[in-house]
């Protein structure tokens, strides 16, 4: 049971300090931090918090998904931008 950070992540570091299990790290690849959740450490916050902390603070829609690839913050859920405008402006990065 673990969440996954995909490549929509913009590397804002918000999730890293809020993880109760220190499961999130950001090894630097070619000068750019790549955020990664260690599946052995991630508990989806069970026992610590009601809600997975990384997904609660992440500002980028669809950047964090569950083990089935479902985004915890689906398109439009954070910005409130209507879907039909979203697709136009996001070059198809986030279409679930």
């Amino acid at each position: 049971m673990s969440l996954v950070i995909n490549d929509l992540c913009v590397g804002c570091y918000a999730c890293e300090p809020v993880c109760p299990n220190k499961a999130i790290s950001a090894p630097v690849d070619r000068g750019r931090p790549v955020f990664f959740i260690n599946p052995d450490k991630c508990t989806e916050c069970l026992g610590d918090h009601d809600l997975p902390q990384c997904a609660e603070i992440c500002p980028i829609e669809c950047a964090i998904e569950d083990e089935y690839g479902e985004p915890l913050n689906p398109p439009g859920s954070l910005t409130g931008i209507p879907l039909h405008l979203l697709d136009l402006n996001r070059e198809g990065e986030c279409r679930t």
Binding site: G11, C12, A14, I57, P59, I60, L78, T79, G80
Partner: peptide, 14 residues
């Protein structure tokens, strides 16, 4: 300071 704890409608966190 990269992280933020709110969202403003005039901001894109990219």
């Amino acid at each position: 300071a990269p992280a933020c704890n709110i969202q403003c409608h005039y901001c894109n966190r990219k």
